Amino acid sequence: MGIIKVNNIKLYAFHGCLEEEAKIGSWYRVDVEVKANLQQSAKTDDLADTVDYVHLNHIVKEEMATRSKLLEEVAQRILDRFFKELIMIKKATVSVSKINPPIGGNVEEVVIILTKKR
């Protein structure tokens, strides 16, 4: 078993319950960790034998572009696509952070973390 991480994917998106968030948007950070058997790819040096982190990033970007009220829903959509499209994944964790959330205070970020296993 091995771990592949894609950290600090920065995106501008329009998630949130407030109408202003739908109009003006804000910055987000997504971190991804997937567990898979990486022994074969370590031997073959072949992309077909591993989880392609370019594909992971592509899924994150597409799902972040679809507006949701809650970050939980966005993180769940990302996880669901990981498991649908990348059969090698055994376990995945997705962290979605809203930078400078509009919650009436000096808050750097809010973070939602979801994990799914096959």
Rank of each mutant, 00 (worst) to 15 (best):
K117M: 11
V110P: 07
I59K: 10
S41P: 12
S41Y: 07
K91C: 12
E33M: 08
Y12N: 14
L114I: 15
M88D: 10
K61S: 07
V96N: 03
V34R: 06
E62R: 07
S95P: 06
D46Q: 09
I59N: 01
K5G: 05
E85R: 04
D45F: 06
I3A: 14
R29I: 13
N57K: 06
V60T: 01
L47S: 01
V110K: 08
K116Y: 06
C17Q: 12
V30E: 10
I4R: 08
D31W: 09
P101S: 11
Q76P: 00
Q76T: 01
G105W: 09
H15D: 11
V110S: 06
V54H: 07
V94F: 09
G104L: 06
V6Y: 10
L114A: 13
K61L: 04
I113L: 09
F83I: 02
Y12C: 08
N37D: 15
L79F: 04
D31H: 07
K35L: 06
D49W: 06
V32W: 03
E20M: 07
H55F: 00
Q76E: 08
A42E: 08
V54C: 01
Y12T: 12
L71E: 03
Q39G: 03
T66F: 07
A48S: 15
C17I: 15
H55P: 00
N7C: 08
I78W: 04
R81V: 03
T93C: 09
W27E: 15
S41V: 15
